[in-house]
Amino acid sequence: MLIDWFTVAAQIVNFLVLVWLLKRFLYAPILKALDAREKRIASELADAAEKQAQALAEREEYKNKIEELERQKAELLRNAAADAAALREKLMMEARSETEALREKHQKQLNDEYRSLTREIARRTQASVFAIAKKALADLAGADLEERITYVFVRRLKEMDARSGFPDRLIVKSAFELQPSLRASIEEAIRKFSGAEIVYEQDSGLFSGIELVAGGQKIAWSMGDYLGMLEQEVSALIRAGSGEEK
């Protein structure tokens, strides 16, 4: 007999025991481990997908931010350029006006200097000419300058015709104190055409001269006249000189 029924029964029991043991020690733990791994992989994949989505969203956000920053930068640059242009224009205007003011000031200063220089020249020239003339006249005539002046003045008086219309009071102005002899010669010359009262006054502004003031008329001889002419000539020369410099 090929079949031993005791063995058959024993093998059935053995097999069932083996099924139970393997279920307990093999299939259950292995399936559990597989499930756990699958779950872990699924969760990691989900996590990765979530992270990817998050990363994409963040990328998009940063892209937008960068675009916004670029836009702001361009706007700021534009504004800065406009501000700079405006500031440059303003500074240029200020510089121009400042320059103009400086130039005007300088011009005014130059004019002032010119005027003071002219005055100074006139004053010095006058003094020099006066001194030179005084010295020259003294040297040449051997007489006092005042006498010579009075002499010239008296000669002019004598050249005048007697005429009516002179006031009652004649004023003789001189730059220096007239000596009694000089006053006598002057009075003599005046009496030829007028019998008016003669008043003597001293006026330092006459520049070594004598003048007779009678109402609206004036007879005079003065170094100041010559000096005035000289001053005009010198002024003309200086103006011509500064015109050439410019």
Partner: peptide, 19 residues
């Protein structure tokens, strides 16, 4: 055979790794 199978299974599944 049962012993081999059960012991092997037990040895392996005693320290299962799900990593």
């Amino acid at each position: 055979l049962m012993l081999v199978m059960v012991v092997t299974s037990r040895l392996v599944t005693r320290r299962l790794s799900d990593g």
